[in-house]
Amino acid sequence: MPIRDIPPADVAQWLADGAIFVDVREDHERASGQAEGTQGVAKALLLAEPTRHLPDRDAAIVLICQKGGRSMDAARALEAAGYTRLASVTGGTSRWQEEGRPTVRPDLPAEAVDFNERYSRHLLLQEVGVEGQRRLEGSRVLMIGAGGLGSPAAFYLAAAGVGHLRIADDDVVDRSNLQRQILHTEARIGAPKVASAQATLGALNPRTQVEAVQTRVTSENVEQLLEGVDVVLDGADNFPVRYLLNDACVKLRIPLVYGAVQRFEGQVSVFDAGRHRGEQPCYRCLFPEPPPPEFAPNCAEAGVLGVLPGVIGLLQATEVVKLLLGIGEPLSGRLLQFDALAMRFRETRLRHDPECVVCAKGRDFPGYIDYAAFCRAG
C-alpha cells in the first residue's frame, strides 16, 4: 500500500479505524502544542529504533511534523523498514492549527517551557539545538564597556541566552550617550552604566545573570575580571585598555573579540593568540605601538555616526556566540573593516609576528606595564 498524503480533516477517520498518530518533531517544537491524539517521538529516535515505538509493522500509522516534509521522509524510511500502512499529514501541525483543530501541550516544568519557547528559533538550528543552547547558558562572557559597542552586543548576547554576562564600566549615563548607547534611557542619566545595563538586560531575559562591576579596568584588577570567563568582548574606547586586555587574554589563554569605531568607520577581529601561540596574531601583532593621539581621537573628540556602533557591536556579538558554540569560522587572523558611508566591508589578513613581545611562541609573559604611559609615548 503506497504512502498516503492526507489532509488534517482525514486524520479523524484514520484514528477511528485504530491508526497510531505520531508527531515526529523535536521535544522543544511540541512544547508549544501538538495535535490532539499524537504521541511524540522525534524523527531521529523513531527511525533509530522503529520497532521499539511501533512494534506492529502492519498497523496503520499517521505521521505529522511542522509542515509535512519530515513526516513524509519518516514515512518513506519506515516503508523501507517494512511498514505497510503509512500516511503523512499535508501541511503538518501548522495547517492543523490554522484549521482550528484541537491541540494539547505536553506537561512540562515551567523552566522547560520557558527554555523551549524563548530559544525556539535557536533550537531549530542543527548547529545550535538543545545541546548548543545549554552550552550558551553555561557560558560566561566578560564585556568591557557598556557604551556604544557594549550596548548592542549585550542586548543580543543576553537575548541569545548567554548564561552569565560580567559587564565592567566605571562611567555614568550622560545625555550625549543616548544617541548610540541603546542600553540606557533618559530616566537613567547620572546612573552607573553597569546598573542601567543590568536593569535593561534583566527585563529582556531573566535567565541571563548580569554581573554589574562598576570599575575601571587596570593591571591590578584585570585578571580578577577575567576569572572564569570563556570569551572577552572589548567595548573600550581607548588604547591603554585595549593593550591591557590583549596582554591579559594572551596570558590567560582567553579569546578576545575586538571592535573599534570612529566617525563613519569601524573594525572587528578576534585575537586568540593565547590558545594558538605562534599561529594566530594578537592585538600587538596588528598594532605593535599605539598611534599618536592626534591620529586616533576617541568618539568624544572625533564624533561617531550613531548607528555605526550598532553594526560593529552586533558583529562582535556574532563572533562571541560562534566562539562559545564552536561553529563557523571566527575572525581570527582577519580584520573586518566597515565603511558606513560607502556601505562596504573590506577584509585584511593579519599575520602573527614571530617577534611579538607578548605572544611569540616560547616567550614568557613579560608582565603588565604602565599602559597609559606606553600609549602617550606612542
Results as ranks from 00 to 15, higher is better:
Ala44His: 12
Ala110Arg: 05
Ala296Cys: 10
Phe365Glu: 05
Thr185Asn: 07
Ala112Leu: 15
Leu178Ala: 04
Gln214Thr: 08
Val320Ala: 08
Val162Cys: 05
Gly68Pro: 07
Val307Met: 13
Asp169His: 04
Asn205Gly: 08
Arg188Asn: 12
Arg216Tyr: 06
Asn238Met: 13
Leu78Phe: 08
Leu201Lys: 00
Arg376Gln: 14
Leu78Pro: 12
Val172Asn: 04
Phe287Glu: 03
Thr51Arg: 15
His276Pro: 04
Glu265Leu: 08
Ser151Ile: 01
Ala296Gln: 03
Thr218Glu: 09
Val162Gln: 02
Pro206Phe: 08
Ile327Trp: 10
Met143Cys: 14
Gly266Lys: 03
Asp27Thr: 11
Phe271Lys: 01
Gly303Ala: 04
Gln97Met: 15
Gly266Ser: 04
Gly68Gln: 11
Pro55Lys: 04
Asp5Cys: 13
Asn246Asp: 10
Val141Trp: 03
Ile369Trp: 13
Ala154Cys: 05
Pro55Asp: 05
Val231Leu: 15
Ile189Phe: 06
Glu289Arg: 15
Ala191Trp: 11
Glu223Asn: 07
Tyr368Asn: 05
Ser32Asn: 11
Ala35Glu: 08
Gly82Leu: 10
Leu123Ser: 01
Leu124Val: 14
Tyr371Asn: 12
Gly92Gln: 13
Leu183Gly: 07
Asp10Val: 13
Asp170Ser: 08
Glu279Ile: 09
His122Ser: 03
Glu220Ala: 14
Ala81Asp: 14
Pro102Tyr: 07
Arg166Gln: 12
Ile312Ala: 04
Arg140Ile: 07
Gly333Glu: 12
Pro109Leu: 03
Phe239Tyr: 15
Cys249Glu: 09
Leu314Ile: 00
Glu127Phe: 07
Gly69Val: 15
Thr318Lys: 08
Asp169Trp: 06
Arg344Cys: 12
Pro106Asn: 03
Gly100Thr: 06
Gly100Ser: 06
Leu178Arg: 00
Ser120Phe: 14
Asp353Met: 01
Leu341His: 11
Gln13His: 13
Gly367Ser: 09
Leu305Cys: 01
Arg275Gly: 00
Gly313Leu: 00
Gly362Asn: 02
Val41His: 01
Arg180Phe: 02
Ser196Val: 04
Glu131Met: 09
Val24Met: 09
Glu319Asp: 09
Ile64Lys: 09
Val24Tyr: 13
Leu124His: 12
Cys375Ala: 14
Gly367Phe: 09
Phe239Val: 11
Asn298Asp: 15
Val130Phe: 10
Ala44Ser: 11
